[in-house]
Design a protein around this nucleic acid. Structure first.
Lengths: 193, 193
DNA sequence: GTCTATAGGCTGATAGAC
DNA sequence: GTCTATCAGCCTATAGAC
């Protein structure tokens, strides 16, 4: 039977992700993390091997969740439009469950050191290509007008979905189902009819 | 007659905005900036008074351009939908002319020190309220469906517009007029009809 | 597993020669 | 206006007592 207690390493990663989100990786010191843990900075090293390791585990964890979510959607028998909607749901799901660490994907990944930086960028690029392939299929089926630049549409959708955590931070009372519904209207159906 | 030459301070700000965008404010040292200028770090202080001053001037400059652009649009006699479209054009305009320093508005503003931090946040909040008031007017006129959450729509549009610089960085050959046209389709008219 | 002490390096910024 | 030299402080990380 696994313990339901969080390990101290997990708590450190939680506190660190909060600080990385608020001040950025470079501006967050081990002192800051130690203060949040009620410890001395040196004691942190009994649980983690470096500040960089914390960042790596946080980002690689999130990246893995996106990758596996994408694989489930691609291998499903959903029709093309339903796949697109399932992607929106995936981002909502991961945002509501990881709102501090998910914030790191907008900017803090640049502080990864090699070889994780290259690995992270490759994983993100594959994710974006797969997202684009779904948009492309929508366009072939006539769901998206031919004149629309789907490269730009992809970036626009991902920008909104990446920043969702910050909106949700200010509007925490909206339900998951309503958030998904509203995002599909705004991102997919458009504002002005 | 003013000189058409850029002052050394202006060149420092350009190089710094490039580095701040790429590595972040905290991870960029005066050494890094000096290297880009072919100078020793100490020599920078003949032109600027601190690293913080560079960040402040970059961010306050951009914020001022957004504020004055918004004021021109609000005081115009354009109809409501045209005002919304003019806002998209404003972001495109400022992005194409300031792509390094404009990148700082997505995250680096957190490194402003007081009192500029408070001033910046207030200015941004006023900008967002004015943007929202235009969306609200669109909704009252029936251009936007009543069921749409315009708080979420505002955040979604601004997310895309804020990250436009990074898309344009990878697709520099698109014309200004086509970029504006595509963004209005994607952000306002929607993908799926 | 936590602490104190500390190493070794980099930071932003200043002083003063030229 | 640029340089060398330098300061005082903070950084990540380690060593070793308890």
């Amino acid at each position: 039977m696994e313990s339901i207690q969080k390990s101290k390493k997990e708590i450190i990663k939680e506190k660190a992700s909060y600080l990385f989100r608020k001040k950025g990786y470079a501006a967050t010191s081990m002192q800051d993390i130690a203060l949040a843990m009620d410890m001395k900075a040196a004691s942190l090293y009994n649980h983690i091997s470096s500040k960089q390791e914390i960042l790596q585990e946080l980002l690689m964890g999130i990246a893995g969740e996106f990758t596996s979510g994408m694989e489930d959607i691609l291998s499903s028998t959903l029709d093309t439009q339903a796949k697109l909607e399932a992607l929106v749901n995936l981002h909502v799901q991961l945002t509501l469950h990881n709102s501090d660490s998910i914030a790191l994907i907008t900017g803090e990944w640049v502080h990864l050191s090699e070889p994780e930086l290259t690995q992270y960028k490759k994983q993100r690029s594959v994710y974006e290509q797969r997202f684009l392939s779904i948009l492309s299929a929508c366009q072939k089926e006539g769901l998206i007008a031919k004149k629309v630049n789907i490269d730009l549409a992809l970036y626009s959708i991902l920008s909104s979905l990446h920043w969702l955590y910050s909106w949700h931070h200010k509007h925490p009372n909206i339900s998951k189902i309503e958030l998904e519904h509203q995002l599909k209207m705004v991102l997919l159906n458009g504002l002005i009819s």
